[in-house]
């Protein structure tokens, strides 16, 4: 990071990559050589280079998900040496640069591992479970056209900022991948917190948390052990306090629940 442009020379790296041709294939780790890698490349650009070489050699390139490459779409995400999104904190894999590595390094690249995230191919996993958690209640039920004036309800700046902190989640799934229990607590709680902190979200608070937690459970994610590994790898630095907020919301909801 502190290295300035040009001070670091191009590197040769050994990659150990998970290859799996499809959902039914068993898959295995395969070794690739990544040569002449510029430290200014992003991690995904390094994979691009490796893939171009694989194609030229007549092989099939490594499938990995990516899109915006500026750390906001949440598409990318692989385990890099056992750490979701790699060694830089608060950084998605697409914004991780090769200057974080050294010449001769061996890099182990694996897909997110969780029962709820079946591998589709190579490093691509199915994260639709996260969509289903949102669908279960991660919204404010307001039809288009129903809205009062934007300034009808003043919202304290601090409250709005807190909600924004939670709402910054990009849904990449790193928290789940890193958690020893493959728990989706940070993801789910970030949305619950975002909406529970705002007055607009208040009427549905109870129902929302009960339904989202039930869905999270149904997707077979593990439980939260409060270790905070999720917070450590979150590219948007979502905090664990969201999880305790979710727990609090949940208690409040089940105690008040009439059904």
């Amino acid at each position: 990071m502190s290295a300035s442009n040009g001070t670091k020379k191009n590197m040769n790296l050994k990659l150990l990559v998970w290859r799996q041709s499809g959902g039914k294939d068993k898959g295995k780790m395969t070794t690739y050589q990544a040569n002449d890698i510029s430290p200014d490349m992003s991690f995904l650009e390094m994979l691009d280079v490796v893939n171009e070489n694989i194609i030229r050699d007549g092989g099939e390139p490594i499938a990995f998900e990516h899109d915006c490459r500026e750390g906001i779409c949440g598409s990318c995400g692989v385990m890099i040496n056992g750490v979701a999104h790699g060694p830089d904190e608060g950084t998605a894999a697409c914004q991780l640069h090769m200057r974080s590595f050294n010449d001769g390094d061996e890099i182990v690249i694996e897909p997110w591992r969780a029962r709820a995230f079946p591998v589709i191919r190579d490093l691509v996993v199915d994260r639709s479970a996260l969509d289903r958690i949102i669908a279960a209640g991660g919204y404010i039920s307001v039809n288009t056209g129903n809205a009062p004036d934007g300034n009808a309800i003043p919202i304290p700046k601090e409250m709005s900022n807190d909600a924004m902190d939670s709402a910054a989640c990009i849904g990449c799934g790193a928290c789940i991948a890193q958690c020893k229990n493959a728990s989706a607590a940070l993801f789910t709680s970030a949305k619950i917190a975002h909406l529970a902190l705002l007055p607009q979200g208040d009427p549905e608070r109870g129902e929302r948390v009960i339904r989202m937690v039930a869905q999270m459970d149904a997707e077979k994610f593990g439980s939260c052990s409060n270790e905070g590994e999720c917070e450590a790898v979150c590219p948007k630095e979502i905090q664990m306090t969201n999880i305790s907020l979710m727990n609090r919301e949940y208690e409040r909801a089940i105690l008040a629940n009439k059904k």
Binding site: L16, W18, M29, M79, N81, G82, V83, E89, V108, E110, R113, A114, R115, A116, Q178, K180, N181, A182, S183, K220, F221, G222, S223, S225, N226, E227, G228, E229, E231, A232, V233, M240
Partner: peptide, 28 residues
């Protein structure tokens, strides 16, 4: 919970360095 957590990740990570981010934020 142990059973659920165990089942939540049927295929373990290959990397031996998994499970410890060395981050200050981690309470592990």
């Amino acid at each position: 919970l142990l059973k659920g957590n165990y089942e939540a990740r049927p295929i373990p990570y290959h990397s031996k360095t998994w499970g410890r981010t060395k981050s200050k934020k981690s309470k592990k």
